[in-house]
């Protein structure tokens, strides 16, 4: 089970937590991108900050086998 916790505006649009059964090791950034697309959220993964539970940025090569949960928030709330 791999859980994504959404914060701020994303939590309002998508929901606070989504947990997924991931049988294979999937790149976390790709997983988030696909999830956003499936929810019809027009946000690029480049606009997001994805961190571990203790606030460290998730490495771009990290997969769902490396971590069990991540936090996802939008980088830019305003301009």
């Amino acid at each position: 089970m791999f859980c994504l916790h959404f914060y701020g505006n994303l939590a309002h649009s998508i929901g606070r937590t989504i947990c997924l059964d991931t049988e294979k090791c999937v790149n976390i950034y790709l997983l988030v991108e696909e999830l956003l697309r499936s929810k019809n959220e027009p946000i690029s993964v480049d606009e997001l900050l994805i961190t571990t539970a203790d606030g460290k940025q998730v490495a771009h090569e990290s997969t769902t086998c490396d971590l069990s949960e991540v936090r996802v928030m939008r980088l830019v709330r305003g301009g």
Partner: peptide, 18 residues
């Protein structure tokens, strides 16, 4: 140190700003 690591990693923001 941890926040700086986090912020430095926001490459897209550095590249384009807002």
């Amino acid at each position: 140190c941890s926040v700086i690591d986090n912020v430095v990693g926001r490459a897209t923001f550095r590249k384009w700003g807002t």
